[in-house]
Design a protein around this nucleic acid. Structure first.
Length: 299
DNA sequence: TACCAGGTAAAAA
DNA sequence: TTTTTACATGGT
């Protein structure tokens, strides 16, 4: 056994396309990167896993973890976590079958074949991302998050990992505000981090909940409203039927591609996406990715 | 300079 | 109960 493994993932899958789509949401020039580099927390250790695609049909990834013990339990977990991060088990074919007859979605899905949503390595990371993106523009949120990572993150082989809940829990509101978070958001994140450390909150439990339960659990946390809960569900948990319809970007985009071009209300966006159940979240994700990579705003 | 931007909870009415 | 308001940063 080596500390690198070949893993078959559900085809169709295009890692490079998925990476480009993920990168297109950040206000920085897209890289040429074809590898996924993923900082993972295994127990108290922070280590880097890498994945690159080595086959299309069947779709295969080579997953490596230099710091893992060859054949060890840590290697096994690194592979599992990496698979989860690339939505390896997601079967896109039923989604493609469903969109095949749709005047807009057929073209969108056809141009993005093999695109899967990439998930952050930890749900806590996703919670931080979601809270930073509340209300302010994505660009402003990105700047805040960059400072957050500079101040509180840890670098592993050139990739900056988010702080663990334990690492963040020892900070103060003032320290968090230094990266541009509002006092409110700083308190939300500290409250979450401390809740996790003290065992009152367990984000990993969300994996075992259905959509309704997860929505309820997340919205019971202070600072986590419906938008944040659904945003975390679709991006962090890979829930393919969940759409944060309150989201300004989604309302604009659904209006643009499935409506008359103007921004919809949340209710209109929900109605417009209803025909795509149980793939409403994936449909919205494909529209977003299409718009960023190939649409009028594409570079 | 304003105003808006992938919201939310708390205050005020 | 429902409706305002404060909050942070960054682009236009």
């Amino acid at each position: 056994m080596r500390n690198s493994m070949l893993i078959e993932v559900r085809a169709p899958f295009d890692l490079g396309l998925s990476l480009r789509a993920a990168a297109a949401f950040a206000p920085v020039p897209p890289g040429e990167e074809e590898r996924l580099r993923l900082p993972l927390r295994l127990g108290e250790r922070l280590l880097l896993a890498e994945a690159r695609q080595v086959g299309r049909r069947p779709a295969r990834l080579e997953i490596s973890c230099p710091a893992c013990r060859p054949g060890g339990r840590d290697m096994k977990e690194a592979v599992e976590r990496t698979c989860r991060a690339v939505s390896a088990g997601l079967d896109l074919r039923p989604f493609y079958r469903m969109t095949a007859g749709h005047p807009v979605m057929a073209r969108v899905a056809g141009r993005l074949r093999g695109l899967k949503p990439l998930r952050p390595p930890e749900l806590f990371d996703m919670a931080v991302i979601a809270v930073t993106e509340q209300q302010i523009s994505l660009h402003a949120a990105y700047r805040v998050r960059t400072r957050f990572l500079q101040l509180f993150g840890t670098e592993v082989d050139g990739v900056t990992a988010f702080p663990s809940p334990r690492e963040l829990a020892g900070r103060t509101v003032e320290e968090l505000r230094a990266c541009g978070l509002s006092g409110r958001k700083a308190r939300y994140l500290l409250e979450l981090a401390r809740g996790i450390v003290e065992g009152r909150v367990d984000l990993d439990e969300l994996e075992n909940m259905d959509d309704r339960q997860a929505r309820e659990y997340l919205t019971s946390l202070r600072g986590f409203g419906l938008w944040t809960a659904e945003y975390i569900m679709v991006r962090g948990l890979g829930r393919t039927d969940v759409v944060p319809a309150d989201d300004l970007g989604i309302r604009s985009l659904v209006g643009l591609y499935l409506g008359d071009g103007s921004r919809m209300t949340a209710e209109e966006a929900r109605r417009a996406l209803a025909p795509f159940a149980p793939w409403r979240g994936l449909a919205a994700f494909y529209l977003l990715a299409y718009h960023r990579l190939l649409g009028p705003d594409a570079p």
